[in-house]
Every structure is written in structure tokens, then in C-alpha cells.
Design a protein around this nucleic acid. Structure first.
Lengths: 121, 121, 121, 121
DNA sequence: GTGGTCTAGACCACC
DNA sequence: GTGGTCTAGACCACT
């Protein structure tokens, strides 16, 4: 069973956090095509949140074709999810690029930033 | 005179954008200790926003001890702000490091990531 | 339900009076970690004041980590508030000590001061 | 020359702080009857504040008959200031009584408070 | 002119 | 229903 971590202080709405967590598990290969995801009610109750919130997340994921619902059977990871990993990678790279812009505004050069990253990790 | 750029489409509230802009100018050394920052009304009118919004930003900055206000005189950059620059840089670098961890979990190596960043920026 | 007493003649702004009252209830153990405090609108209407004023008080308390707010759920007493009680008492005692120093400079002895206090209260 | 300490962050207006400082020096016997106090302009410039502010403080002190102005000569401490010390003492005692009320609200008994004060001072 | 406070009321997203 | 943000506008004290 996947562990969805929620941060109630975050500016990100809960449903988006759920989406990101599921996408993360898919991208990491922890959730694979045809794997069943928890039912809306189940996940809602285990997270202590409103089922509508989970529904909103699942709707979004279904729309992005990351999950697919088979009525009376349950909800499953979709088959064609090759794109998920690259999407995720691109998004993360894009986030770094944005932060690097900030750092450049603060007077750091690209090589300075990269040297710093090498040291830290 | 400092130029505050606002993005009304951003998820970040206006007052936080002001905070970040002021912090940026402090970090860059453009605003130095004892420098006067624009008065609440002045900044509000020049940005075309409500004075209360600017006040909220200034309250926040005062709480963080980045500015200090002398009632009826104005608002000024605080004295001990040595940490602000490096603090800010460190925080941003740390954010990147966290994202890089994610990327590594997704199967990217450090050099792969860095090559990607070089291309993008 | 906590009773917030306001004094509109006081030099202390309303929002600070709310802060002090909440802190007092926390210090007294009447409000305990995870207890829900009245919603902004509810407290505002029961006090006959503007919700923004209550919000300002709550913002302040959140910043001091005495309360924590979960958007759309409500506002709650924070978890780690062991220090609040003793902090508050110590601050007040310290204030008295400072005033006693003044009184001693004015020629009163400690026992003289204490006898005076006993009479007055 | 007396040293007037001002706190620009305080909620107390500057002119009240000046009043309190002068009263303090009188009560302590550092300023005695017939002693000359600095001229308005002199004090204003040495404190880096507006002469009107000093004027307001002096007006108040004159009204309370703590100082007296002899035109073309200057401003002096008044003759009958016996009351100043006791006034000051009473005010300070009253302040302590107020703080003790707060402490009692927090659950401390009078003897508890007094024992604490004995230890601390 | 400055900042400090407060009101009234609006709109938003989320649940 | 909840909190979060913002506006418009008012009044105050202090300088």
C-alpha cells in the first residue's frame, strides 16, 4: 500500500498533493500498470479527509490517463504510462531552472551554482 | 529607488511577492542597512495596490527583522542583516538539492541532471 | 468555549488583546494542544468586531507557533506549547523585577515594596 | 547632563518617554530644584528629533509643575517637587499590582509570586 | 506627511 | 462552512 503524505500547511491544495504523490509512485515504478489503487472511500478514510477531495484527485488523474476506473471493479493504474516519468522529470528540471533564475538574480553564476550543488550532494 | 515587479497570475500572494523582492534587493546589497524603503502609501500607489497589502508585506519583513519601522518617520532596512544573503542562497540551493534527490530516485544521475540544466538555461 | 474580554479603552489594540487572552487560556491549560479555537468569523461575530481583526490576532499566534491552522478545517492549538505557560510567567516576573529595580533606586527597600504590594492587593 | 533614552519601537510616544525620563531623574534626585534643563532646541537636536516633540513634553511637565520656564533665561526644575517621588513610587507599585493580577489569572498565588520575586532579586 | 488600527465588504479556493 | 487575500476607505496619534 502506498503512503500518501499530506502537508496541511502547504499552499498546495490537498487534491493536488494526492495527484503528485500518486504520480510520484508511478514514476518511481512503485505503482505499475494494472495495479489497483485504493478506493476513494478507503483512501479518504485512511487519510482522514473528505471523499470529494480524493475524487477530485482521481478525476484529474483519470483525465490525464494515469489511472482508469472500471466500474464495480475498482481503480487501476493505466497501461500506457511511459510519459509519466519523462513528464515528471521535465517538471522537476523546470523547477530547478526557476530556482536557478532566482539565484542568478542574487548574483550567483551558473558555474557557481553547479559547483555548489556538486559539493552538497 | 527599488523596482518591485508583481505577477498577478502567480499563486504567490502579492504581499509575499513584495517580501521576496525586498529580500532580493537586500541580498543583492542594493538595499543596505539604514536605507529607507518606500513609505507604505507611496509604494502602494506606485504599484497600484492597496496600502494594507503593502503593510502586510512590511509587517512580515519587520517580523523577520529585515526592516525596522519608526512610526511617523518611515521604514528602514534593519542593521543586522548579514545573514539574509547567504540564508537566502542556502535555502534555494537546498531546494534544488531536494529536487535532485527526487530526480535521482527517478533514475537520473547527477551528471545527467547537470547536463540537462546547462542545456536549458 | 473560551471567553475573550476586550477593553476598547485600552492602549492595547484589539488584536493584541485577543492574542493575550488566547495565550492566557493556553497557559492556564483551558485550551490544550489540538483543541479547536473559534473560527475567525464566529469569534468576530460573537465579539462584534471585524473578521480581519481576529485574523490578525490568529496570524500573530500562528507565527508564534501557539496555534496552527488547517485551511477549510479550522484553527487549532499547536502541539508543542509546553513553554508557553512558564515563558509567560517568567516574562511577567521579569517585568516586576525591573520595576522593583526602579523602586530601589528611588529609595525603597525590598521588604518595603513587598509590604506595599500586600496591602494593595 | 541627563541622558534621555528613547525607544522608537515602543508604543509610548516619544514625548511621553521624555516626560518619564525627566520625572525619573527628578525622582532619583539627579535633577534638583532650580537645576536648568536643556533648552528645547538643544535637547531636540541632541536627540535628533523634532523640537515640537520636546515642546510637548515640556508643556506637559510644566503643566504638572515639575519644570518652570523663565523666558529668556531657560527652563528649570520647579521648587516644590516633593510629590514627584511619591507619585512615581505609587505609579510603579500600581504597575506591579497590574502585572500581579495577570499572574494570578495564570494561576499563581500571591505568596508564590512574592517568593519568586525574593529569589530573583 | 508617517505608520497603526479597524471596518465593511468582496471574491477566491477548498472541503 | 473554512481560511486567505485584497480593496476602499476611515480615523487616530505622532511629528
Amino acid at each position: 500500500m502506498v503512503m500518501i503524505n499530506l502537508n496541511y500547511q502547504s499552499r498546495l491544495p490537498i487534491y493536488e498533493q494526492i495527484v503528485l504523490e500518486i504520480e510520484r509512485y508511478v514514476a518511481l515504478g512503485i505503482l505499475k500498470p494494472k495495479d489497483q489503487v485504493p478506493s476513494i472511500r478507503e483512501l479518504a478514510s485512511s487519510l482522514g479527509i473528505n471523499p470529494n477531495t480524493v475524487k477530485k484527485a482521481y478525476d484529474y488523474l483519470e483525465n490525464k490517463k494515469i489511472i482508469t476506473t472500471i466500474s464495480t471493479k475498482g481503480t487501476f493504474i493505466a497501461d500506457n504510462i511511459e510519459g509519466v516519468i519523462t513528464d515528471k522529470k521535465n517538471k522537476l528540471i523546470e523547477e530547478i531552472v526557476e530556482i536557478m533564475k532566482e539565484l542568478k538574480k542574487l548574483g550567483m553564476s551558473e558555474t557557481e551554482i553547479i559547483n555548489n550543488l556538486r559539493k552538497r550532494s
